[in-house]
Computed example of a mutant assay.
Amino acid sequence: MTDVHKIASSAVGSNGASSAPLTLDALERAVGSHDIDTVVLALVDMEGRLVGKRLTARHFLESTVSHGAESCEYLLATDVDMSPQQGYGLAGWDRGFGDFQLKADLSTLRLLPWHPGAALVLADAFKASGEPVEVSPRQILRRQLERLAARGLRAQVGTELEFMIFRSTYRDAWESGYRNLTKATPYSVDYTLLDTNNIEPLIKRIRISMEGAGLNVESSKGECNLGQHEINFRYGDALRICDDHSIYKLGSKEIAAQEGMAITFMAKFDQREGSSCHVHVSLAGADGSNVFAA
């Protein structure tokens, strides 16, 4: 298996977006000029969310790049409310909670335009022995992609995430028990242009911010439910697109919070149309052709 944690910075590329992820050299220059002061080291958890640490950029360059950063094993043994659960082989109340090492995958290093002065890099979990934690979501996906590669195939993935927008803050939603929230639009805005104009400042900021973070945005549109929208991204290699998927969910929620609003990607908020997560998968052969079309 390729050790992605030792990839030369010159090999770091983009997924086709106009603003490519950062190289390590570019990060060092930005830190030296005081343009970047924080690096978010993020792990994909069992719910597909990003968890981790915010590091000073100086510490990231001096220590984390080469040695990683410690984190608790319970991050891969919790439920959606971050409560540790029994039955996991990695960690639990019956066997204790140790640490694993988070090592940055430098091919994912990028700016966070919605957090000026910050960059983000995804990490993989490693045991003290240096072996990868096999139950981590990115590692599970890598194993399946390696099985495909052994057969001369490469997975191409595209995801579409629908979401609901509320003109309430996350704190307001929590305090109200998630009841009586004000949806961003009072009626269906599926494919409409004029009626989605009032929410366009938020949607545009998400689109532009995702481009600035190296994601390849294609379009956005209103959806059927009240306050429901969708932003679409170009397909690409499976691991990279799944990484982008998690970054997009985190970023859009953070941007909404900064605008005094809230977003949820939950599948079924009310009795009306639910928010889907469409996952489009195709397989490319050695010549790049779609083997499903053969």
Rank of each mutant, 00 (worst) to 15 (best):
E175F: 06
D35C: 11
A8D: 13
V133Y: 03
R207I: 13
I203Y: 03
M164T: 08
D94E: 14
S83A: 14
R138D: 03
E47V: 05
H280P: 10
A284G: 03
S276N: 11
T196F: 02
K6W: 07
S71T: 15
V279M: 10
E73H: 11
M210G: 00
M82K: 11
L145A: 06
L120A: 11
R205C: 15
I140V: 14
L109Y: 07
A155T: 02
T182M: 10
Q101Y: 12
S9M: 11
R95H: 14
G96R: 14
R240Y: 08
Y88L: 13
E273W: 00
F269M: 08
T185Y: 07
K6A: 13
I206G: 04
Q271K: 01
V80A: 11
F100Y: 14
V31C: 10
A57L: 05
D243L: 08
L215W: 02
S188F: 01
R110G: 01
A77H: 07
G227Y: 06
G130L: 12
I208D: 15
L102H: 01
Q86C: 12
Q86F: 15
A256K: 01
G96A: 14
F265M: 12
T108K: 07
T196E: 01
H5M: 10
L43R: 01
L27V: 06
Y170M: 08
R207P: 00
H5I: 10
S18C: 05
L27I: 07
A123F: 05
I263Y: 09
V44R: 06
T64H: 09
A286E: 08
E200K: 15
E146M: 08
G288A: 03
S83G: 05
Q144I: 14
W93V: 13
G222P: 01
D237A: 14
R138M: 06
H229M: 15
L141Y: 07
T23M: 04
G260F: 14
W114D: 00
G274Q: 02
D237E: 13
S188D: 03
Y74H: 06
D237G: 11
D35V: 09
C224F: 02
M1D: 12
T23I: 06
S168P: 00
A20I: 06
I263K: 06
Q156G: 05
D172F: 01
E134R: 13
E160A: 12
C277W: 13
L27A: 04
H67Q: 13
P201T: 07
C277P: 02
S18L: 10
D237W: 05
K204F: 12
S176K: 08
R207F: 15
H5A: 08
F163W: 10
A173T: 05
K53V: 06
R234E: 12
S219V: 07
G251T: 15
G117F: 14
K221S: 11
A123R: 00
I140M: 13
R142Y: 04
S246L: 07
A118V: 09
P186M: 06
A155Y: 01
S252L: 15
R95V: 13
Y248R: 03
A30W: 04
D35L: 13
L106W: 06
I140D: 02
E259M: 15
W174S: 12
F100S: 00
A238R: 03
G98N: 09
N180L: 09
T159K: 00
F126C: 04
L153N: 01
A238C: 12
L90I: 10
A123S: 09
E162A: 11
D99E: 11
G152Y: 02
I231H: 05
I255V: 14
K103L: 10
S289F: 05
D195A: 11
R272K: 08
A11I: 04
S129F: 12
